[in-house]
Simulated assay, not measured.
Amino acid sequence: MASAPQGQLPLFYNQLAALSSVDHADFRVRPTNTAPFLANHHAVPLTVEEFPLVQRRMPIVFSVGDDPVPLALMGLNEGVNTFLDAEGKLIDDETYIPAYVRRYPYMLARLRPESEELSLCFDPTSETIGAFEEGDKLFENGEPTELTRNILSFAEQFEQAGQRTSQFMTELKEQGLLMDGEISIQPEGAQPFVYRGFQMIDEAKLNELRGDQLRKMQQNGMLPLIYAHLFSLSLMRDLFGKQMRQGKMPQQPVPLTTN
């Protein structure tokens, strides 16, 4: 069984193995309505295409570091997810689930650092794929089934969306539009909770951009995405309220972390 490099695996992934019609000829996928791997995560990577869908439901922020990525916040504190119960089942079936989550346990990966070719891989520790008696087949007569072809297509679309997201983030950094974020929320009669450890758009710098710069951002689709992010920040207090109602508040205020 060919395995991808195990160092620096993305969020949620414990191992990676290349999906093979030989090694996994009898593998099946069984459906599930839970995501236990997500239940204790408060921040999920996003692609730019998802901003319009997410901004009405979850705050969108950016991670810290040299290579920031967009994040959908499902909670404000480490280990808190207000949209799922302890078993990883959606509390509200209408909740939008980011593509990054829906892609798991599959992804495209390079099996060797020097290789340009991407292979369809999966996390063998996932309980949804294996040599089960029940479930949908991944291969039939040595050929990928329609299910496998659909999985590959989704992974390819996600990879392309990730490249567009990287271009968006590069432009934000080059324009100097990212700033350290901070939000203070004070429950009645209690000490304020101050959340940091994320980045957001600097509205002052956005307003200082020249007309030609703004026009370019409007034409290439960046400006609507920026405002989707800014509008979504109003949901921070709503998310805080959900945590309080669910009894998921920490004993003392702690910084928001995004990694």
Rank of each mutant, 00 (worst) to 15 (best):
T95M: 01
L46H: 04
M107R: 15
T47Y: 01
A86K: 14
P70Y: 05
L214C: 02
V254M: 13
L214I: 12
G221E: 07
K137T: 06
E133F: 08
E94S: 15
P105K: 07
G65R: 11
M236R: 02
D26G: 00
M249K: 08
R56Y: 11
A25C: 00
L38G: 03
T258H: 02
L206K: 01
T258Y: 01
S234T: 14
I226S: 02
A190W: 11
G88R: 06
I129Q: 01
F83C: 08
D67L: 10
Q8N: 09
E156C: 11
Q218V: 08
T82G: 03
E146Y: 09
G247A: 09
Q252F: 12
Q8L: 03
L84C: 05
N220Y: 02
T165Y: 04
V29E: 00
Q157V: 14
N14L: 12
T95I: 08
G75Q: 04
T95K: 00
S234F: 12
L38F: 11
A2L: 15
L108G: 09
P124V: 08
P98T: 07
A4Y: 02
H24A: 07
L225C: 11
T32E: 12
A109S: 14
R28C: 05
P10Y: 03
P98K: 08
M244I: 12
E203K: 13
D202T: 04
V54E: 04
T148V: 13
L239P: 01
Q175M: 15
L256E: 01
A109F: 10
N77R: 07
G221Y: 03
A2C: 12
R56K: 11
D67T: 11
F231T: 10
P124W: 06
A161I: 13
L178G: 12
I151V: 15
L108V: 12
L214W: 03
N141C: 04
V69C: 12
L11V: 09
R102Q: 15
Q186H: 10
D136K: 14
V101M: 06
L225N: 10
Q167L: 14
D123Y: 03
L206W: 00
G247R: 04
V64H: 06
L46Y: 05
Q167P: 00
G65K: 12
T82M: 02
M58Q: 11
V61D: 00
T34S: 10
V44K: 01
R149H: 14
R103L: 14
G142K: 12
E116H: 13
P98A: 13
L118S: 10
E127D: 09
A25D: 00
S119E: 14
V54Q: 06
N77P: 05
A39W: 00
D123F: 03
A25T: 00
D202N: 11
N259S: 09
S184P: 09
M236V: 10
Q15S: 09
L120V: 10
N77I: 06
R30V: 11
Y104P: 07
P192G: 13
E143I: 09
T32N: 08
T148S: 14
K89R: 13
G142S: 11
V69Y: 07
Q243T: 10
P250V: 14
G162T: 13
A99M: 11
M107H: 08
L19M: 07
F12E: 03
T47H: 06
G142Q: 08
V80N: 04
D26K: 00
I226G: 03
N220E: 07
